[in-house]
Simulated scan of single mutants.
Amino acid sequence: MFGKNKNNAVTQDAVMQALSRVQEPELHKDLVTLNMIRDVAIHDGEVSFTIVLTTPACPLRAQIEQEAIAAVKALPGVSTVNVRFVADVRQDHRIIGRLNIPVKNIVAVASGKGGVGKSTVSTNLAVSLALDGAKVGVLDADIYGPNIPMMFGLSGRPRIEHDKLTPFERYGVKVISMGFLMPEGEAVVWRGPMLHKAIQQLFTDVNWGELDYLIVDLPPGTGDAQLSLAQSVPLTGGIIVTGPQAVSVSDALRGARAFERLEVPILGVVENMSGEIFGSGGGMEAAKKLHVDFLARIPLDPQVRIGGDSGEPIVVLAPDSPTAKAFRDFARVVAAKISVQNVAPQPQLKIV
């Protein structure tokens, strides 16, 4: 019988054969084919192995663990199964060679208009990924109204070492913003080449270190900043933030069309501030019109405003609240979509 030796003891081959029947639920390939199994050890019926996830924010980790244990425990001679998890985030291969920074994925968060909580979404997305164990940075590219410093409770000027800016770090996230480099309250009126150069330097002249995800908070609208960003760096994907109202949906569609024209994959739509006051459903409607995934519905919650003012994202301020849990789930969905895209890139659907 395959996998047995002459002493009728389970073998490494048998374990790998069993695990080859366990599918990664979102990549739709088995764990062995995806090279996700490491360090198989067998001792007196006790089997141990490591599963290498494609993101530490894997939303289906529990399912993978249960199915892997069941598959191996079904082998004759196995009494105990121990599973360890590590993560190796897959890289967007378009980034290799384009940027001289060790960043695996760059995700832009955009909206067609202001006032929908785009910076709040960017902040809680980044902190949620960091809480799950990912290496994360936030680049505040909202040149005209940088809010990320307030969201993280940061101020002052970053240090310069070896001709590069050293980002601030809080909640496990590295943060850089034009807000750190300008006098407080000063308006920026850059356009065209000046804006393009400023955004490019926020990538190349900052010592980001190794990052799994760099979240870029874009200014609202579809102007020079979006164009400069898409021309400067290869974006792994864009996330569209909308409110529940019809007017927000209309603006979100315009923002998505800008991504499409710039050939940026749209990861999906998130509806922010959903609830009794503003209603709900706008995000789902926008996603349907764009033929992309609806990523999350984030409830309207006064604690989000309190945390934003005090520099404490709600996933830190009130981690057990429904809104914090919605943000954590949202981040895991985004991480999973990036993993799927990097393993098997999907063609970008045209918006109709």
Rank of each mutant, 00 (worst) to 15 (best):
K4V: 12
N5T: 09
N5Y: 09
T11M: 07
A18I: 10
P25I: 04
K29N: 15
D30I: 09
L34M: 12
R38Y: 04
A41Q: 14
D44W: 01
V47F: 08
F49K: 05
F49L: 08
P56A: 13
A70C: 08
T80L: 10
V81K: 07
V83C: 08
F85D: 13
A87L: 10
H93S: 14
H93L: 13
I96P: 01
I96T: 14
R98L: 09
L99N: 04
V103Y: 04
I106N: 02
V107M: 06
V107P: 00
K118T: 07
T120I: 04
L125K: 02
A130T: 03
L131D: 09
V138I: 14
Y144G: 11
Y144N: 11
I148R: 00
I148S: 00
P149G: 04
M150P: 00
M151Q: 11
I160R: 07
H162Y: 09
D163K: 13
V173G: 06
K174E: 00
K174L: 00
K174V: 00
M178Y: 06
G179V: 07
G179T: 05
M182Q: 06
H196T: 13
K197S: 14
I199C: 03
I199D: 05
Q201I: 03
F203T: 00
T204Y: 03
T204N: 12
D205Y: 02
D205H: 07
G209V: 01
E210K: 10
D217P: 00
L218P: 05
P220H: 10
G221L: 08
G223T: 08
D224V: 05
L227V: 15
L229H: 03
S232L: 02
S232F: 01
S232D: 08
S232E: 06
V241Y: 02
Q245V: 07
A246I: 09
A252T: 06
A256M: 08
R257Y: 06
A258N: 05
R261H: 10
I266A: 06
N272I: 07
M273V: 04
F278E: 07
F278N: 15
G279Y: 08
S280F: 09
G281V: 14
G283R: 00
E285T: 15
V292R: 01
V292T: 14
D293G: 09
A296T: 09
A296I: 07
R297T: 14
D301I: 10
Q303E: 14
Q303V: 08
G307F: 03
G307P: 02
S310T: 13
V316I: 15
T323C: 11
I338T: 03
I338N: 01
S339C: 11
V340G: 09
Q341C: 05
Q346V: 14
Q348H: 11
V352N: 15
